[in-house]
């Protein structure tokens, strides 16, 4: 085996001409092999990510009939529209509210689990992951039954304690809260499992050293745990923020964007405008609206992670 890791043995004598040697050298180059091996992945990303994204961008520049290019006209129209401006605001409330709650609950659950003895931990971990493994459209349907405007089982339980019925899906703020609650219920286990993995990777010696220095539990959390988990927290928050901004099924099943479009988020509104109303270009513009914002956000978070990694090396 050569120093670069490529096989050199068994070269047939017939391939010893200059041209063949050149081709063989090219084929044996580490970069060529690496490229060939990643080609399936590149093709996959090209076909399933780059092409659809490019097509959506192109679509968003067309008029409704898709017969003329109107540049950023769809975005201009959207920004002038009351409903769409409300959708931006609601999507931010939904995504930021849900991600913050998921992060806090996930962090708390991870700590609880981390301190359970290993023997019983697996059982609890499995149970807490259940919401995350059920398809969200299905679990949201279960929630919808519990929030049903007329026959809510939660309201029935509340009535036992003489608590008046809550209009879970009928009043705007209750409806928004319901949508966030279901998203938090579904997404917290993901944070929990990521944070648990991060917690397990923090060396015990750091806590021992902190304890010798007289650090309190809070100080241990503030100066040992959080800095050690910083990268995982950043990645998880970024990933979840992107996924939550793109969430569709929970709103669609639970409220269909109502009442009065006040729970509508980018994805559900894009579907309404693009597919149901037959205005594909404007639907594409709605779905692409957050792309630049999230891209900038992702750039800074990932740069921060890279910097921290370099500092630690």
């Amino acid at each position: 085996m050569a120093a670069d890791g490529t096989l050199v043995a068994g070269v047939p004598a017939s391939a010893s001409t200059g041209r063949a040697n050149g081709l063989q050298r090219f084929a044996r180059r580490r970069s060529t092999i690496a490229f060939l091996m990643t080609l399936p992945l590149i093709a996959l990303i090209g076909g399933l990510v780059v092409y659809p994204a490019g097509y959506a961008m192109w679509l968003s520049t067309l008029n409704r009939r898709m017969t003329a290019n109107i540049g950023l006209g769809n975005f201009e129209l959207l920004l002038e529209n009351d409903t769409f401006r409300a959708v931006i605001w609601q999507s931010c409330i939904f995504a930021v509210g849900a991600v913050v709650l998921k992060a806090l609950i996930g962090f708390w659950l991870a700590h609880m689990l981390h301190h359970i003895p290993a023997k019983g931990q697996r059982k609890w971990r499995g149970m807490l992951l259940v919401p995350w493994v059920i398809p969200p459209a299905l679990s949201t349907l279960g929630w919808w039954w519990m929030f049903d405007p007329s026959y809510s089982s939660i309201n029935w339980l509340l009535s036992i304690f003489a608590v008046p019925a809550v209009p879970w899906l009928g009043e705007p703020w209750w409806a928004r809260l319901s949508v966030i609650m279901v998203n938090v219920w579904y997404g917290s286990p993901f944070f929990m499992i990521m944070y648990l993995a991060a917690l397990k990777s923090v060396p015990d010696q750091l806590y021992e050293a902190a304890a010798i220095d007289g650090a309190t539990g809070w100080q241990g959390l503030r100066y040992v745990t959080l800095p050690m988990m910083q990268n995982i927290i950043s990645i998880t928050v970024l990933f979840s923020l992107i996924v939550t901004f793109a969430n569709y099924d929970i709103v669609r099943v639970l409220t269909n964007g109502g009442p009065r479009d006040l729970t509508q988020v980018f994805a559900s509104y894009a579907f309404q405008v693009g597919i149901l109303s037959g205005n594909l270009p404007r639907g594409a513009a709605v779905s692409l609206f957050m792309f630049p914002v999230l891209a900038v956000f992702a750039f800074f978070i990932l740069r921060g992670i890279n910097r921290r990694n370099k500092e630690q090396m």
Partner: peptide, 21 residues
């Protein structure tokens, strides 16, 4: 009308009739 009609879907009215309400 019932105060939750703003959140009714296409099945809610059916249920209202069928349940006798």
């Amino acid at each position: 009308l019932p105060n939750d009609v703003w959140a009714w879907d296409d099945a809610s009215n059916n249920r209202a009739l069928i349940s006798g309400r």
